[in-house]
Structures are given as structure tokens and as C-alpha cells.
């Protein structure tokens, strides 16, 4: 990871270009607005996600980071602005939205494994139902992915017989089964016991090393600092600051970023 060199008071310049900057960005958010009744969740957010980048969205609860993630795969509709995937705005017709969703994988805070299916069938479900793959092929692919997350021995288990960390790893495998271009993580470790957080973060780190484009909403600051290529700090539905982890965690330009990290007990 390249580190920032400080110039003057607060301003920074990166020594190397941002990862993936040599290609057009995978995702572009243009002035995205989202409201729930009177509450403004996203207040005209503009952001760009590069190919192969690991982007972490951090910030206090209710600051809009999860909302932005859910707008990305159209689980939420926009009240203003656009989201562009590979330069094309997200469609509105459900049949086309579904095709876009197939290109993105999402991992939820509450895992949301399907309790009435085994781990293997959970992972195979996407390919069978959505891609029309045969059961045999889908199961083969599912097994490979379960091996990848280290859970091939639990393939026949139902979610109720898996620990939280194991369930989340199966959930990651399930999302990967669709061979997405982008992986969206919505606070993947917030509901886990501290002991199991590590096993999930390791899987995510491996994915990052393989070059997957990832957007991760998280409170795990050490993960953000060590694995992210780009960190975006949210507050009150807007971006407070964004930059490489070194900038955000060691030399933030905005005072309130410092406050937020300080509140978390982050000594850098």
C-alpha cells in the first residue's frame, strides 16, 4: 500500500495513482438522493468506484452508507440522481433490474441464509433458479465455492446448525456463485461474535487479493486500514472525506473525520 506524504497543514498528495484509475470506473454515483418521508438519507452523493478496488464506507449509524449500498443494486429506489454500472444507468423495469443484480453479489449483516435449505443448496440456489443451471452443475460449483471459504465439510448442514461466522461465509459463497463483477458487503461482521469476525474478514481479504471489486460498509477499522484501497467517510447523508486509508486513518483532512475516528477509540 502506498502511503501519503504530508504537504503543509492537512493537505495530502498520494504518491501513486488510485487503484484501477487506468480504466473507466465500474460504478459511478451522480448526485444520488434518497429520502424516507422527510428524512434525507442521502443528500446528493457523488462517488466513483474503480475496477478491482476495495472501497470501505465508514461513518456513524444513519449516515447513509448502507442506503447507498442498497441503492447500488436497486433494493432501494432513488429520489434523485443516477447510479451508473459500466457507464449505463440502472434500469427501472424489474426484468432488467434483475439482470443488473445478477452482476452484483450482496452479503447482509444478518446473513439471510435460507433456513429451509442446506448450506450447499443455499449456494447452488442462485445458479439453479436465476441462471437456469442444472442441479448437478450448480452443486459442483457450490462445492468449489464452499471449499474456497473453508466450509466444504458443512455442505450438508442447515443454517441452524452453523455458527454465525460459518453462516456468513456460506453467504459469501452464495453471492460468489453468481460470478458477480462487484461484491457489496453491508456490515458483514456487525452481527458476529468477536471470535468469528476474523474468519469472515480473512475470506474477504482473500477475495480482495484476487482482484474482486468490493464495496464494504463496515465498522472494522483495522480491516479498512489494511485491506481497503479507498475509504469513504459518511456523515448525515453526505461524504465527509474520501481517500486512501493512509490519509483517512493517519492524516485526515477534515476535522470531523478525526472526531469520528477518535470517538471509536482509533489511535491510528
Amino acid at each position: 500500500m502506498t502511503s501519503a506524504t504530508q504537504q503543509g497543514n492537512g493537505a495530502t498528495a498520494t504518491a501513486a495513482p488510485r487503484k484501477g484509475a487506468d480504466q473507466p470506473p465500474v460504478l459511478v454515483y451522480e448526485n444520488v438522493r434518497k429520502m424516507y418521508g422527510d428524512f434525507v438519507a442521502l443528500n446528493g452523493v457523488s462517488l466513483q468506484v474503480n475496477k478491482g478496488e476495495v472501497m470501505c464506507l465508514i461513518g456513524p449509524s444513519g449516515s447513509g452508507k448502507s442506503t447507498l449500498l442498497r441503492c447500488t443494486n436497486a433494493l432501494e429506489t432513488l429520489n434523485g440522481g443516477r447510479v451508473l454500472l459500466d457507464g449505463i444507468p440502472l434500469p427501472t423495469r424489474e426484468t432488467e433490474v434483475r439482470k443488473v443484480r445478477q452482476r452484483m453479489g450482496m452479503v447482509f449483516q444478518s446473513f439471510e441464509l435460507f433456513p429451509h435449505k442446506t448450506a450447499l443448496d443455499n449456494v447452488a440456489m442462485g445458479p439453479i433458479t436465476v441462471l437456469g443451471m442444472s442441479e448437478a452443475d450448480a452443486r459442483k460449483r457450490a462445492m468449489v465455492l464452499l471449499e474456497k471459504v473453508g466450509l466444504e465439510s458443512k455442505a450438508g448442514n442447515f443454517p441452524a446448525n452453523l455458527s454465525g461466522g460459518q453462516q456468513q461465509r456460506v453467504a459469501i459463497a452464495r453471492a460468489l456463485a453468481m460470478e458477480p463483477e462487484v461484491m457489496l458487503f453491508d456490515e458483514p461482521t456487525s452481527a458476529l461474535d468477536p471470535e468469528t469476525v476474523g474468519e469472515v474478514l480473512n475470506v474477504m481479504k482473500k477475495l480482495a487479493q484476487e482482484g474482486m471489486t468490493m464495496i464494504v460498509v463496515t465498522h472494522e477499522m483495522s480491516f479498512a486500514q489494511r485491506v481497503a484501497n479507498w475509504v469513504v467517510v459518511f456523515e448525515n447523508g453526505a461524504i465527509l472525506e474520501e481517500g486512501p486509508p493512509a490519509q483517512i486513518f493517519e492524516n485526515p483532512t477534515v476535522a470531523r473525520t478525526r472526531d469520528f475516528l477518535g470517538h471509536l477509540g482509533w489511535n491510528g
Binding site: 434483475r98 439482470k99 453479489g105 450482496m106 447482509f108 433458479t129 453467504a171 453471492a175
Partner: peptide
Amino acid sequence: EAALAMGMS
């Protein structure tokens, strides 16, 4: 949501 996120109708 998990089902929709996978691309299911």
C-alpha cells in the same frame, strides 16, 4: 431481499 439481490424475480 437476499433472494432479490441474487437476481431472482
